[in-house]
Amino acid sequence: MQIQLNGEPHALDSAVTAADLVETLGLTGRRIAVEINEQIVPRSQLAETPLSDGDQVEIVHAIGGG
């Protein structure tokens, strides 16, 4: 299946959770926030949140800005 990850197409195996995606990207333990289809997914729920074909996933972090 395919999702949109940070605005780009991203291919995934089926039966993948948001936590799996974060781990695959090497972001486990990093200070990030995840949004799926414009809804925040709390860190505590990433492992119980399955991804579906066509999901729009945003993963953000803090950067310098004024």
Binding site: L25, G26, R30, I63
Partner: peptide
Amino acid sequence: VTFAVRRTNLGQDAEGPNLL
């Protein structure tokens, strides 16, 4: 101290210095 929120760079520099 104020900061911005942006998409994480994927597949590069995951271990780079973090603002926080």
